[in-house]
Write a protein that binds this DNA or RNA. Sequence first.
DNA 1: TTTTGTTGATTGATCCGTCAATAAAAAATA
DNA 2: TATTTTTTATTGACGGATCAATCAACAAAA
Lengths: 196, 196
Amino acid sequence: MPKIGMEPLRRKALIDATISAIGERGSLDVTMSEIAGRAGVSSALAHHYFGAKDELLLATMRHILAELTADMRRALRSASTARERVSAVVAVNFSDVQFRPETIAAWLAFYVEAQKSAALRRLLKVYARRLHSNLLSGLTGILPRNEADRVAEATAALIDGLYIRRALKDGVPNAATAIALIEDYLETKLSRRSAQ
Amino acid sequence: MPKIGMEPLRRKALIDATISAIGERGSLDVTMSEIAGRAGVSSALAHHYFGAKDELLLATMRHILAELTADMRRALRSASTARERVSAVVAVNFSDVQFRPETIAAWLAFYVEAQKSAALRRLLKVYARRLHSNLLSGLTGILPRNEADRVAEATAALIDGLYIRRALKDGVPNAATAIALIEDYLETKLSRRSAQ
DNA sequence: TTTTGTTGATTGATCCGTCAATAAAAAATA
DNA sequence: TATTTTTTATTGACGGATCAATCAACAAAA
């Protein structure tokens, strides 16, 4: 019984279903039928709206990225000092919305898939660059440029590393501990400089 | 034309072929025929020696892990002080043998697969624990126990994070830079404590 | 003649993507 | 207003491709 204006609702439902399916299976090896089933529609409809599976996956990654970007913008707006900006960027990556098992699993899976898909790789590179420049925007106010660059690189690596370890359910158990770890690193790096 | 004693040679060749195939494709989505072809045999032979595909993949991960463990032992043997032991553990992870594109891709792919395969997950957890205790064996000589634990956790996260970023071919470009980044972190962490 | 090495051919399952068909809403036309 | 037509929503069924795993068969060494 077709009601008009279904398209945006179905697209959203299918993308949500994709994330939860990936999260449960822990990889992109989910079938279109599985995803469609979770969204309460047939696989034919998923193809109708997204064309190929690749595009559904791409749209899903775009959605995750867009949410992260929005959260990041919000967090940066409410940070007044350079130091606060750095902490805000870190905190967003471990917020309740971002640091969920499904989202983490999706990130990891997409990282792997990016090695095959050029489109996905481009998306992830854009995110990486944005993360770096966001971190830098805070750090350059405190450290000399080339050292700020290093610290930004290390912080980004720490974030990714803590995501991976969380996916393995080994090592750092929760977001608070993860944040504390990175903040500890930043504190030693920044307080040291400011003390000299 | 069968010659005796082929089994160990074929096993080795198949495992090597698996690593190079995974490295090239960037994921575990490689067919048995592809792997067998690279090893110069038929896919039927691969099944003959390894049974199922899962077991070939598992054997491959075991092989990578065994090599890393051997390298680690060697490096630790030639380190005399606690501080040197820490650096040795870090260095091994970025040695020419370990920090190759194929090996990195394989690691990443296996991390993802571990979410599906319990056997693989067990393997990776063993590795994670060993890495942690190796780092700790050096750090406990310098830092109080609970802080040593934290630093070990952060170092492990940095290693994983730098692997991921290398896989994306973005960020840190080479092993030397990666090592410098981690050593810089360790130096600030350790020199600070020893100065107090 | 038994063991070891090896493969081509085949089977069975999975899964993506397409298509024809159906149904209801909306728009156009009479 | 009544009708036809078009657009939007939706699915079951199916074709075709891929691939893991098996098996029968063959060859050479022991």
